[in-house]
Design a protein around this nucleic acid. Structure first.
Length: 271
DNA sequence: AGAGGTACCTGGCAGC
DNA sequence: TGCTGCCAGGTACCTC
């Protein structure tokens, strides 16, 4: 589920409730996530203060002094804020309780997510080390994208979803950004002109910013930290719209598969 | 280095 | 009603 907009929406919802708060309890109901939740997580966290909640790519980073708690939502993970711990429901896996009474509860049906401890002494966590630039950073521009795609013969959509190139665009927003930029997803990355890559940079930013403004997308599971859905799915131009008319030209939206993922595009607007 | 496929896991849905 | 197969927002890891 969660691509950058959903993670950022969650971060914004959580931060005011937990920043500068002391962790008072950690309850791990099921440690079987993508990697096992560390057995000593409670010992590491209890008594520590969360200074800040950051986001890098689709990771939430809880900063406690120079140490970091890393949270990733995988496909179906979510974090919700409660004033007091409600009864546990299916797929509720972890509770973090704070001095102000707030309970952060991690919920994840498919358990592709992760909760990991990254001590300052170990340096930057390997999961974060090779990530490309943030889409809203100055480092992500046409010159960068041009230079980093010249040896790439894979389709531009595959490149756009490669976290080493740029982070944050998953399957939904890669499809939507390519539509906005007028670029066909199957075009070889190294055959997209500098000018069109500049449009793609702008399109990625506009798409992600619009999605954040709508609280992200809710297809099935995703809810924000208050349990509310996102609404950006109502504004999709191509994702999930196979056979429906293009909102610009009226041609039916096409669906294909690339690297095992569904790709949607308009055959007339995207070249 | 780059590209492609597989795996992790649960649930919802279409089709029979 | 129930079974089977396919699909789903991510990404590490493997082989070629």
């Amino acid at each position: 589920m969660p691509e950058l907009p959903e993670v950022e929406t969650t971060r914004r919802g959580i931060a005011p409730h937990v920043e500068r708060q002391k962790v008072t309890a950690v309850r791990v109901y099921d440690r079987r996530l993508r990697w096992p939740v560390p057995r000593d997580l409670s010992r590491r966290l209890v008594g520590r203060v969360v200074d800040r909640v950051d986001r890098r790519s689709k990771y939430l980073l809880f900063r406690l002094g120079r140490d970091t708690l890393i949270v990733h939502f995988g496909m179906t993970g979510s974090l919700r804020v409660y004033g007091t711990a409600p009864a546990r429901r299916t797929h509720d896996h972890i509770d973090l309780e704070f001095g102000n009474g707030v309970v952060l509860r991690y919920h994840d049906p498919r358990r592709f997510g992760a909760m990991l401890w990254s001590p300052a002494a170990a340096g930057e966590h390997p999961l974060l080390a090779a990530l490309g630039p943030e889409p809203f950073s100055v480092g992500f521009d046409a010159a960068y994208l041009f230079a980093s795609t010249r040896t790439r013969r894979a389709a531009i959509k595959i490149a756009l979803m490669d976290n080493r190139l740029v982070v944050g665009a998953g399957n939904i927003y890669a499809n939507e950004a390519l539509f906005r930029a007028g670029i066909r997803p199957t075009r070889a990355a190294n055959r997209v002109s500098r000018e069109r890559l500049a449009r793609l940079v702008a399109a990625v930013r506009q798409t992600l910013a619009a999605a954040i403004a709508k609280g992200g997308s809710t297809l099935r599971d995703y809810v924000d930290s208050d349990g509310a859905p996102g609404y950006f799915q109502l504004e999709y131009n191509v994702y999930g719209r196979e056979g429906e008319p293009c909102r610009v030209c009226g041609d039916p939206i096409r669906a294909i598969r690339q690297a095992g993922r569904a790709t949607y595009y308009c055959g007339r607007c995207q070249t």
